[in-house]
Design a binder for these strands. Structure first.
Lengths: 208, 208
DNA sequence: CCGGATATTGACCGATTGGTCAGGTACTTA
DNA sequence: TAAGTACCTGACCAATCGGTCAATATCCGG
């Protein structure tokens, strides 16, 4: 216990969860030891086992919490005022901002999704997808029925495209920043604005 | 050494690399033990240290090889015949097919990219990006100068959008398959065709 | 048939892992 | 104040980790 930890708030259980979330978001399951979590939380390792029966349960609790919080943050992205085009614009912007605001949560949940070998709890990780995805699909459908969009495209496909553009941007930001032709690596607002504008043109009815 | 391994080809060094690649692509660095690699390769653990000085070096070698192979596969995606629109269509298709053809390589390299805690060799992982990215940007620029595309969009932004759409599809395929409104989870060709068509509409000049 | 590399091995090492346990502290309630 | 209970700890455990090493097996040129 060399580390004079920074976390001081909350009761034991939540301090452990906070410490574990921080460490698990940076490194994989096996790369984070219970001792490290205890040190980060400023308590003894044995004390963790007073709140959690084993490492897997703790990880699951962290993932559940992170998943819930991320879901809450992301769901705020869906607003419902203005034209469908404006709703889409705001959604893209808020969604990307949400990702960038809580990067630890995103990394934590996304790592779980990508893990093929030991699917610990993909159910939780996948939750965030469902409601946001369907909300976005609904928006696109509304745009089609209102005549703001062409009726001959798959809303789910466009939703995937938009979500993917944001997630990919989030994931590859550090890499993108290395390439000279890319000017938007540190301008997420400009990025999603450009994306959405191209998308809106692509979705517009023939009689634009 | 309980496992009667399947790998039998090649000399010792390549058997080790193949076994390590397989295991590292499924689980994270710390989750793969040298014993497991030895078992998978059908040799003794000590023998690994005859070819590689330590675990990090072995991992680095695997990553380097995977990165190189993935790069080769991906670079085939760039063809250069037909109209720019057709080139783009083919690129999207081939790129996604390449990702799906060697999923282990993609997962291996991408995990390294996402890892924040211990950047072991992001240089290698990032290599594949550069050339393909610039090739795609060049195609888009050509489309602009030829007048097939509008001149007022950022080619790098569109390249990111297209690459992101494919990578995201690759990563989330298992999740997407769970949602009823999604019909394209098992139809990658249909997916990228739809994506590109929307994009092409978005990039088309005002006088379409 | 020999002798020097090259491969390959089982046994072993200290360190660290997840997890246990007996006991101590501190707060609450009677 | 006494007892009960939730909280917390250092010491300890077997198992496994990455890595070492001396000894052997295998090969190949002379």
């Amino acid at each position: 216990m060399d580390n004079i930890q920074a976390i001081a708030e909350g009761d034991g259980r939540q301090r452990i969860l906070a410490a574990a979330e921080k460490l698990f978001s940076d490194k994989a399951f096996d790369a984070v030891s219970m001792s490290a979590i205890a040190c980060e939380a400023g308590i003894s390792k044995a004390n963790i086992y007073h709140y959690f029966p084993n490492k897997d349960t703790l990880y699951l609790a962290v993932l559940r919490m992170a998943s819930h919080n991320l879901r809450a943050v992301l769901n705020e992205s869906v607003s419902a005022h203005g034209s469908v085009r404006d709703v889409l614009r705001h959604f893209a912007h808020n969604h990307l901002q949400a990702l960038l605001k809580r990067p630890e949560l995103v990394r934590l949940v996304w790592r779980e999704i990508l893990e093929k070998g030991a699917p610990r709890a993909q159910e939780f990780a996948e939750q965030g997808f469902a409601d946001m995805f369907s909300a976005l699909v609904d928006v696109l459908k509304l745009g089609q029925t209102r005549g703001e969009f062409r009726p001959d495209f798959d809303p789910a496909l466009v939703a995937t495209l938009l979500l993917g553009a944001n997630v990919f941007f989030f994931q590859s930001r550090d890499i993108l920043r290395h390439y000279p032709p890319i000017t938007f690596a540190d301008d997420p607002a400009g990025y999603d604005a450009g994306i959405v504008e191209i998308l809106l043109r692509g979705l517009a009815p023939a009689t634009a």
